[in-house]
Nucleic acid binder design. Sequence first.
DNA 1: TATATATTCAATTGAATGCTTGAATAAGCT
DNA 2: AGCTTATTCAAGCATTCAATTGAATATATA
Lengths: 223, 223
Amino acid sequence: MSSGNVKHDLFAQFARIGKALSNANRLELIEHLAQGERSVDALALVSGLSIANTSQHLQQLRQAGLVTSRKDGQRVYYSLSGDDVVSLFDGLRRVADRHLAEVAQLVSAYLDTKDSLEPVPAAELLARARAGEITVLDVRPPEEFAAGHLPGAINIPLGELALRLGELHPDREVVAYCRGPYCLLAFDAVAHLRQRGLQARRLEDGYPEWKVAGLPVESEQSD
Amino acid sequence: MSSGNVKHDLFAQFARIGKALSNANRLELIEHLAQGERSVDALALVSGLSIANTSQHLQQLRQAGLVTSRKDGQRVYYSLSGDDVVSLFDGLRRVADRHLAEVAQLVSAYLDTKDSLEPVPAAELLARARAGEITVLDVRPPEEFAAGHLPGAINIPLGELALRLGELHPDREVVAYCRGPYCLLAFDAVAHLRQRGLQARRLEDGYPEWKVAGLPVESEQSD
DNA sequence: TATATATTCAATTGAATGCTTGAATAAGCT
DNA sequence: AGCTTATTCAAGCATTCAATTGAATATATA
């Protein structure tokens, strides 16, 4: 009995975390937080939830130990409570990928519709970027950007795109890229930008392919 | 919008898995299944749930893609759908360990009460085992047992203990051990056996310590 | 001191969850 | 064919959840 109770209590604690992961909106918040500390209203904006609702979900995540918060001035910043949360989220994604048929369907549908976005070949990007006709957008995290990126590219991670639209020239076509041809970040970015009325396409490949092809790159140091 | 919907749908799928992990009883079922394929009634027995309730939880786990089932004769055997489920569960446990104060409290309370179980020193176990006064019980998984175990030990993984009590001599004291001094399997086994009215204590250390101390071991090959 | 801004709290509503109970399948056994 | 065992299905009840709404705290700015 004593062992049984403690064990069950322990599982009940684990279940609190499972419960925190049992809602799509909370998972979306976690994904945004995986890119760094965010305030409540920034999270509400990117997730499309009301402020109050966002706040309440964040509190549930905090009670489950998945996020922490700090108050600075009149706003509260939330962040993931550790890298283990990221890998837990990854584990969730991986299991879903492998064992839920619905996920495979969604992903393939996703990629299909995206092919209608007419990707830009590397040579075309290079020529038009040199001519100043396009904005080259790198949607990877800053660390990866710093390690190397396309010449003249500006770096706005996908999660910050909604907040930093002002940094893009409104009349110039945007060409987005990320890690590789199947990296979803660039798809998302293009879809997002088009929604906002900008002209946007994605690079046919990603940064690694570009580099391997011997095309010019920049890194923070060489700048 | 299109991107937003697909993305949200994708998260909704991930959330299904989170939901499956949001209940203590389901987590307990997963833990048992991590030790191998089990029938519904075996799971109901070890988890203390009603048959119908167990069946329903298992169906939820199956719908979330975490377990699969096969029918053999008149019974249905469930098993985890992959190793990724085990590591997902591990991730859950790890996050809980690190970020939930309640878990730390429970675990320390657990270990405290267990110290009242007066662990058996290695030398005493060796002497009394040779004299045939005690049953030496290894509660680790069969693979680990096969790789090496204490001389004369019998192997009943913790999850099977409830089902295989009959294999233990009812009047002989049982000394249980597992991986190490903080391995909870042996604690659980002792608590469980005492509940069932057997005399039981645990070895002070675990198998690795025993082996390192130069005490005699057996393995399946040398048998 | 008044007035925004950012966040949280509290109350409410409709839907979902966990568990129980009793009936319905379905596969052996005699 | 009957009987037993193992599992699933279906209905019902108390509890919990997600989201909305409007009010309540803080913290800044004028």
